[in-house]
């Protein structure tokens, strides 16, 4: 019984995280300015990391944790680099 509830709520939370990624993707596509798109990229990285963690819980495997850690690292580095580019790219224009 409780396992059924857990499986359904896993499915529901995966759907919610996918919807969250769709919202962030909307912000990336629509913009309107470059900093809004970068904010969307940051949000999509976080949602992707959480989605991978829920997959890890569903499969009962800890391999997913490493993938989530890598995604978190990549998300931080890429957003920081993009934000830095927004400041410096403007100077050159």
């Amino acid at each position: 019984m409780s396992t059924t509830i857990l499986l359904w709520s896993l499915l529901a939370s995966q759907l919610m995280l996918a919807a969250a990624m769709a919202c962030a993707a909307y912000r990336i596509l629509v913009g309107p300015r470059a900093q809004d798109r970068v904010l969307g990229v940051d949000a999509i990285y976080v949602c992707g990391m959480l989605l991978i963690l829920t997959f890890g819980i569903r499969n009962g495997s800890m391999i997913y944790f490493e993938a989530a850690l890598v995604i978190a690292l990549l998300g931080f580095v890429s957003t920081a680099a993009l934000a830095k580019f927004l400041m410096r790219g403007e100077v050159i224009e």
């Binding site: 019984m1 409780s2 396992t3 509830i5 857990l6 499986l7 359904w8 709520s9 896993l10 529901a12 939370s13 995966q14 919610m16 995280l17 919807a19 969250a20 990624m21 919202c23 962030a24 912000r27 904010l39 969307g40 949000a43 976080v46 949602c47 959480l50 829920t54 819980i57 569903r58 009962g60």
Partner: peptide
């Protein structure tokens, strides 16, 4: 997952729904 006791399964289900709901609300705000 079938080996989980009932209290743990329910707590995990609640936390998952809470966390993903908050994340979804954040991106809706976005």
């Amino acid at each position: 997952l079938h080996d989980l006791p009932a209290w743990a399964a329910l707590a995990i289900a609640f936390l998952l729904l809470l966390g993903s709901g908050l994340t979804l609300l954040g991106t809706i705000g976005l």
